[in-house]
Design a protein around this nucleic acid. Structure first.
Lengths: 348, 348
DNA sequence: GAATGAATTGTTAGCGCTCACAATACGTCC
DNA sequence: GGACGTATTGTGAGCGCTAACAATTCATTC
């Protein structure tokens, strides 16, 4: 009769029951080759019978491996971070790792540091930091931690291995597309200044204009939210008829707000003003009108980040690849339908 | 001189350096009261100097506690699951627990079972399953696992402790609101049949109509995506002028698709057809027109789920509360602007 | 100044597993 | 049939920590 289930059975219990040594049980579980089929079968049967499961902590202590990675993220209900998170976990799982996540409301030096401490106490072997705010990135390089850290979305400048979608290129694609469609100038509604991605998108936008010998118009700022886009859209509406025909908005949510503000002001999209966004959230295709935007390949970001982190953990620091850049892709929809200057289009 | 940093320092190393026993170091770290201030200070200084951090696995092995919870979820890039996930992690962290997440593409008996195995091997003390698909819920009750499991979004029927937003009530709020606004009948675009939440929303919708002595019209089905909403919207457009004046859509994303289809068909919202959604995603307020919808309090869901799970883990099974229901809230916006029958409104 | 008790510190066993090595079993060859 | 090599199994020692208990210190009190 099995001992009462007060304590879950140990490997020794299984061994006793199967008439072998605990080491043999360990071999069976570890898929060691040198175990007689008969023995293996018997052990497996007893394991099944007793409902035995290896104790994680004991195993981790003996092997000095927890096979757990940490992720620090913020704004995880937004499409971008949520997608990255999903991709990271999936990639980690494929490599046999579990992922512990800490989701921050605000990413500051303090919260980041606290999150790393917490993950450290949780025994993670490495951490991915989805750290788009620049302040936090700087902290990352300073902070002492007993495990490797890979940054995502920090841009390549930080003194930390990182994986990034080429935001500047994405901005170039969108801006260039608008110029190619016939627009003389392209305005820009940017994200918050302390987000590296926002900065990079501004850079790409500005560079594209300058290369086309166009003076960049006034820069507007939002906070990624639809509401901030709406407010900026109201301001933009005032410039229609005074040279504003195209806007590149730094994310789709703000673009949604812009679209609504323009509509309310009687400005038609894309006839009067073309609008492009960034992110390709699932809703964009059904905006009024469907939104031209820039798609980021989050799955690749996840895979590359995990691969880089595991390299670091295993000590195979392929130093050359510690800065990974991924190309984004332009998705053209009705909101930037080719612009054709028409007489009589005098919006109010 | 400290030993070379090949291996991270252990508690014994710290103890030696500080001239105390390892147990005293343990006491300092565990905030035990009976340690002389002087001793505590010295130990803390040495810890700081050596950059010592307690070994998670050893601690977990000795205490038999990992202070880690598992979460199984699917569709984590959608607003609802992402918000729940965020709330869960935050609530768990507040209680001193770390969260390991497994995000599934599809939630089936197999993937769920695999996820639970994985989390089990990862040493979690309990699991929250965000399991909206009914097939998966049934599996939950069957599966053998060595830790308590709390289900979220499964409805209260499952044989598992669970936390739910009252979906049926949410549907009643939306449907009742449309009836009160003067609509004779309310149509419904439902979610997939195997999602409990979709079923409950249908139930609430139907009950509200029946209580008002209204024969429920034909039921439409989508898959939560904007595209499926768009397709359903095209179908709905065909019923305008034949008794269709109001639609309750089972989520905001599909509602977005419906809005677009109606617009394209020349049907005005809300003048010709009123539309209500469910979820209150951040974008809803900026749809064209802003969407009336039902808001779920995910933060509360998270807190209550964690509280319930911890009760189960600690063995204080307050059996009465093992089914928690949370009230949703109606958010009225322009898409259901009070309906006033007007002469001459002949859509089509 | 010896007795008493509380505060502080140290000692000893595990927690349940894996690793390195030792021991045994089994087959094969000459 | 004994020697050899290989497949299979067992043994002992930690991994680094906490819990329980034992030992010591220190201030009181009479």
């Amino acid at each position: 009769m099995a001992p009462s289930q007060l304590r879950p059975p140990t490997m020794a219990d299984v061994a006793r029951q199967a008439g072998v040594s605990h080491q043999t049980v360990s071999r069976v579980l570890g898929d060691h080759p040198n175990v007689r089929d008969e023995t293996r079968a018997k052990v497996l049967r007893v394991i099944e019978e007793m409902g035995y499961r290896r104790n994680f902590s004991a195993r981790a202590l003996a092997t000095r491996r927890t096979r757990t990675l940490g992720v620090v993220a913020s704004n995880t209900t937004l499409y971008g971070p949520a997608s990255t998170l999903f991709a990271l976990e999936e990639a980690a799982r494929a490599e046999g790792y579990l992922v512990s996540t800490v989701s921050l409301r605000r990413l500051t030096v303090e919260t980041l540091s606290e999150a790393l401490d917490r993950l450290s106490e949780g025994g993670v072997e490495g951490v991915i930091a989805i750290a788009a705010q620049r302040s936090a990135v700087e902290a990352l390089a300073e902070l002492r931690h007993p495990f490797p850290v890979v940054a995502v979305g920090t841009g390549s400048g930080a003194g930390v291995p990182s994986v990034n979608v080429d935001q500047s290129l994405g901005a170039r694609l969108a801006t260039g597309h608008l110029l190619a469609a016939g627009h003389r100038r392209v305005w820009h509604l940017a994200g918050p200044e302390d987000w590296q991605e926002a900065v990079d998108r501004v850079t790409g936008w500005r560079a594209t204009l300058e290369e086309a010998d166009v003076e960049p118009p006034m820069l507007l700022r939002g906070d990624w939210s639809p509401l901030s886009g709406y407010r900026a859209g109201q301001e933009l509406a005032g410039w229609v008829g005074r040279g504003l025909t195209a806007v590149f908005v730094a994310n789709d949510q703000m673009a949604l707000g812009v679209l609504r503000a323009l509509r309310e002001a009687g400005v038609r999209t894309p006839q009067d003003v073309a609008v492009a966004g960034f992110d390709d959230i699932p809703e964009s295709e059904f905006f009024a009108p469907p939104l031209t935007t820039v798609r980021q390949d989050f799955a690749t970001v996840g895979k590359r980040s995990i691969a880089l982190l595991l390299d670091l953990i295993e000590g195979r620091t392929s130093s050359g690849t510690s800065q990974v850049a991924i190309e984004p892709q332009l998705v053209v929809r009705a909101s930037t339908f080719p612009y054709l200057p028409q007489p009589g289009v005098a919006p109010g």
